[in-house]
């Protein structure tokens, strides 16, 4: 044992071990920071995917509501339509609120749908309050169909980004 200590002292092995120890500690610290950052990034990605899945669900419901609105226009069910427009607008507005990072094109599409349904709602409310003639359902549905197409495009593009 004494010979071993003597060997360590004579060859300055203690100093070398300290330097090596420090070096290993720095590498270990770097690896820890890298792992923590990677985990943090993974958590953020999962959170973003959850928001996207939630958005897909709301937009799918919004599209179904638009299709129902088209049917109600054909059936001339004017009295129940204002409530449907309100539900639809709330969905579209909530998607915009929950997704501030949506692309410019997607924001424009959602905004356009809100604008178009605001005008349709005002028209129907006006007709109901003044007892004016029923509007042309096919003309209204031409607008609704265009919004369904736009929303479908937004929906598909968001679906394609989940997990990426």
């Amino acid at each position: 044992m004494r010979t071993l200590f003597q060997f360590i002292i004579e060859n300055n092995i203690g100093d070398i071990a300290s330097v090596l120890g420090l070096f290993l500690a720095i590498i270990g610290f770097g690896i820890t920071i890298f792992t923590v950052r990677k985990a943090k990034f993974a958590v953020l990605e999962v959170r973003n995917d959850i928001i996207k899945i939630d958005t897909i669900s709301i937009l799918s419901e919004a599209r179904a509501t638009m299709e129902e609105i088209e049917r109600l226009h054909r059936e001339k069910a004017w009295r129940i339509l204002p409530d449907r427009y309100t539900v639809l607008k709330k969905s579209l507005i909530s998607v915009q609120g929950a997704n501030p990072d949506l692309s410019k094109e997607h924001k424009e599409s959602l905004n356009r749908a809100v604008g178009q349904f605001t005008i349709i709602k005002n028209k129907i409310e006006n007709i109901l309050s003044t007892h004016a003639d029923s509007p042309d359902a096919s003309k209204l549905n031409k607008i609704v169909t265009k919004q369904i197409d736009n929303l479908t495009q937004v929906l598909e593009e968001i679906k394609n980004t989940v997990g990426r």
């Binding site: 410019k104 924001k107 424009e108 599409s109 905004n111 356009r112 809100v114 604008g115 178009q116 005008i119 349709i120 028209k123 509007p135 003309k139 209204l140 031409k142 607008i143």
Partner: peptide, 16 residues
């Protein structure tokens, strides 16, 4: 075009 013949709409990211 909109549901009203006399109204036209253009939309941007935050406003229409």
């Amino acid at each position: 075009e909109t549901a009203e013949e006399n109204i036209f709409l253009v939309s941007f990211s935050d406003y229409s």
